[in-house]
Design a binder for these strands. Structure first.
Lengths: 194, 194
DNA sequence: CGTCTATTTGAATGTACTCAAAAGCGGTGG
DNA sequence: CCACCGCTTTTGAGTACATTCAAATAGACG
């Protein structure tokens, strides 16, 4: 709970009573490795802020292939924005990759919070603007860089995630097969030798 | 100007005085075909709402290839969010594809507007949430669908844009070469015949 | 009609995928 | 301590998807 307040206060100021009101709307939950915070087909009823642990949000296509849209670690918001804002069934799954503790705010509480503490609109606007900017750059990089370049950028940008996550999930995040990522890694290690 | 108010009022209510204050901060401009609303390297100083016309936002990579991140038509906000929110040099260019009339709000005025009319935070939060959801889905589609499938989805989703924009730009938006898109179109027309 | 730009064609090439099988690796139980 | 199990990663051969380059064709505009 404290981590969330610290995170929010980086962007906006809250009075004590606002803090208390916010806390009254926030629920803490813990999930085990493998458990789903959100399943595709269900409505995303909560905004979820990761307190500790690690999750992935992925899409399961018609051929049964998983496509990871995002990893989530401490101090990140996760879920399916589309589903949450429209309260329609989600296309994405959010699954815990290890024991994960989160705090959640329900859709109804979120509406009330926005009404009672309008400054929160700003906080979430800033959060989502940043996320949108990053997602745009990701589209561009997928179109302008090779898989190898994207992999190298990934491990430089997210070294901790790169180490704590199985390779086949990194491949999925990059939009390539696990076999091809293995191939790329071989290439890289051979380049280093020579 | 009226179109902007109508668009905003779909999400939030404004009093007459708020409307007037907003109008005092909004500047209308017209660009000719080919002109740039924003050039990479410059700081994105304005939020831009398209009144009429058509634009594209693209990234120019190191090999000199253009990658279109978005088209913008009537009632769309365009620009480089990253650059605008951080007031650092933009990576993207926004260029008019035909004579285009826009209304703009500067960064400083935007800050004041947010302070004076906090409800605008909600409006822009909603706008950007939707855009983020769409961009996420685009990443997933790039990873889970073939170029042909993406092309068919594009012309179904944006039939008017598909007709009003040169093919090589659609190819760029889809992340493929103009030659390959031409090939795809040939395949499709041959399928229809048989 | 001529010029400029956009689109199409085709051949050669490269990047990434599929499928199948082998190897590695961590945990668990005998 | 070792054998086995399940899961992840690696390997390799064959293939498919998409690119590059060069040249021809088609369209748009003055």
């Amino acid at each position: 709970m404290k981590k969330l307040l610290i995170h929010i206060k980086k962007d906006i100021k809250l009075t004590e009573s606002e803090e208390h009101y916010l806390q009254s709307k926030v629920v803490q939950r813990t999930f085990l490795k493998g458990q789903y915070i959100l399943q595709a087909g269900d409505v995303c009823k909560n905004q979820t802020f990761i307190y500790s642990g690690k999750v992935r949000t992925f899409y399961l296509d018609n051929n049964g292939n998983e496509h990871i849209i995002a990893f989530g670690i401490e101090n990140w918001w996760v879920g399916d924005i589309c589903s949450f804002v429209t309260q329609t069934p989600a296309e994405f799954n959010t699954q815990c990759l290890e024991k994960t503790t989160v705090v959640q705010i329900s859709y109804e509480d979120m509406e009330q919070l926005y009404d009672e503490i309008p400054k929160l609109e700003r906080y979430f606007r800033i959060i989502i603007q940043t996320a949108y900017g990053n997602m745009s750059k990701r589209v561009i990089r997928n179109h302008s860089m090779t898989a190898k370049e994207r992999y190298l950028l990934f491990i430089n940008s997210f070294p901790e995630t790169a180490q704590r996550v199985p390779q086949y999930m990194i491949a999925s995040y990059l939009g390539i097969t696990k076999e091809f990522l293995s191939n790329i890694r071989k290439q890289i290690s051979e380049e280093i030798k020579s």
